[in-house]
Design a protein around this nucleic acid. Sequence first.
DNA 1: GTGAAAGCGCTAACAG
DNA 2: CTGTTAGCGCTTTCAC
Lengths: 374, 374
Amino acid sequence: MPGNVAHLTSPHVNAYIAVVNTSEGGLGVGGLGTEPIPGRARATIEDVAAAAGVSVATVSRALRGLPGVAAPTRERVASVAEQMSYRADPAASRLAMGRSRSIAVAVPLLNGWYFSQIVAGAEAICALTGYDMIVVGLYGDAARRSFIDAGDSIHRRVDGVIFVEIPLTENDVSDLMARGLRTVTIGQATHRFPSVGIDDTYVGDLATSHLLSLGHTRIGLIGDQPANPDGRVVPALRQTGYAQALGRAGIALDPKLQVSGSFTMVGGLAAMETLLELADPPTAVFAMSDEMAFGALVAMKQRGLSAPKDVSILGVDDHDLSELVGLTTVRQIASDHGSRAARLLISQLEGNASTVARYDGVVELISRESTAGT
Amino acid sequence: MPGNVAHLTSPHVNAYIAVVNTSEGGLGVGGLGTEPIPGRARATIEDVAAAAGVSVATVSRALRGLPGVAAPTRERVASVAEQMSYRADPAASRLAMGRSRSIAVAVPLLNGWYFSQIVAGAEAICALTGYDMIVVGLYGDAARRSFIDAGDSIHRRVDGVIFVEIPLTENDVSDLMARGLRTVTIGQATHRFPSVGIDDTYVGDLATSHLLSLGHTRIGLIGDQPANPDGRVVPALRQTGYAQALGRAGIALDPKLQVSGSFTMVGGLAAMETLLELADPPTAVFAMSDEMAFGALVAMKQRGLSAPKDVSILGVDDHDLSELVGLTTVRQIASDHGSRAARLLISQLEGNASTVARYDGVVELISRESTAGT
DNA sequence: GTGAAAGCGCTAACAG
DNA sequence: CTGTTAGCGCTTTCAC
């Protein structure tokens, strides 16, 4: 049976090795970072100024490439700074300039494939531009509110934020603007901040149409809570596309065919079980993410069913593993969304006029073995 | 054929919508964040002090819960601060205190499953303790050096770092110490900093032994560059375990059976191809990560082979999808490693004596369908 | 082209 | 218990 196991547990389980407590004076395994770390005195801008025989103002200007410094001076300062391996203390310059040269990426969960792609994409741009990227997980409404409210975090810690699939209410948006925080969203479009994403209605339509064209008429949907009032907008749009395609084909919506999979593999598994237990189960299922589709495949496998023989399955993302399991999917380039958003945000922070209201990424249907005709 | 596709390209591809340039005065789509954002004047500690009729010192003390403040005073300050929604400017307090209340997590790549689990685990602890987590991708030696050298980043931006599978030389270690940067490693153990990981030699042995016990004698290994001089230590250890088990069974090592998969799915795929093209291919393969194992499965599938019929495959991680594809694997709880490391680091930053030199996580063999007897 | 000095907003002695 | 004050290290007018 799948997942049944021989639990050859490691003999090394939970091995806390070498408990050291140096509060009573530094004995213990190799001084595990408890001794007062020396931290050789760092050079300050004054040290550099003195060594270069100029004022701190000149050092500051020279090192940051500001105009109004004679070429020879600039060079001298640079080399002195270099050899003292001087670097401006970020905290000090943040305080003086009021900008932190860092951004936050807020995601609803961190271990999803889609989100890690986004984070990877954004990180690449941050590395390129010298920005720090802090990532924060916002699980649920409360976390989102406390993050946005003056009540919490971001405030002055970052210059801007990328909200990834975080449902922003009108209220949130105005709070954000009032706070003067540059914002870019991924997924949802706010009409106030630039955003990047895909045409999710089109995605839902494309997926469903594909299934329809194969002859299916009873098509299940694995998505998000349909009842979620203030929920993510992406699932809703994909659902709209689904309904739209069905409508065009003259097929009535069946609420029982639409279940939530919480955008996780286990959620998809449970959702598929629900679908399979229906008196009149679907012959094809559109899962709004590949991970949920994987879950659906597992559910089928557990009952001795397989795709597309018993039910066709179609996902969204083109996860790294979709090819392995032969999953038909609507591909999007998630890491691109992340880097795009970061570029948009940072370019804005650098004072460039924002140029894009919405960037819609590429989308295409990749037909593999998990879908077939009836 | 797998991966062959119907490219129904979206008609919405690359749609740059609404190009706005307000450098010539605010017309354009709904003011896309180009206008001088107001950013209502933030309250400073002085404002609060004035409003509460106390000194800034008292405000500071009261708000941070320091001793030596009368209860009524503390309360009054708190409520005034609350209703002015005052929050200490992090840049200022960082400068004054010399601590940033943030840590960095450095990973060699961001889109691997293992690493996103780690990041997720660490983030949870940071959220809990009020630390910011900045994540940085260190691809290759140069990036690592420039990160560690005074020459670059971290310096004063974070109080501590978690290095995830970043090979640290003795030199790196002393630089880090000299710099006074609290450090925790995941994977490699340095004997200077606390570390978390698993017993990787044991992992290699466990996996190989399992294959041996099934009767296999020709066992391939998909890992990392064996020749990498300064490479990650984890692959080397797992390889040691592999050699160890083989040795116990009296089987000689065959270099041709050991190939690099770069710890990615495509790398695993290529590695498996190499293995399959051998004159005398293995009957079982131990891949050092599930993702590489997935790649191996794809390679087999592409040639009309399947596991375990033609070759048994075994991975490491227990990836979310391993159950789906029925992959036998050595499970580790990656997110745990991340949270553990974060806890270790932060507790140290909070001044607690470090208590653990090395935390070894749980490991167990999960036997599924991808392995069978000869 | 360069320097002097006034902050940025907070923390931490040191007095009272 | 509370207030005064001197920094933290950098940026940025404003003079020279």
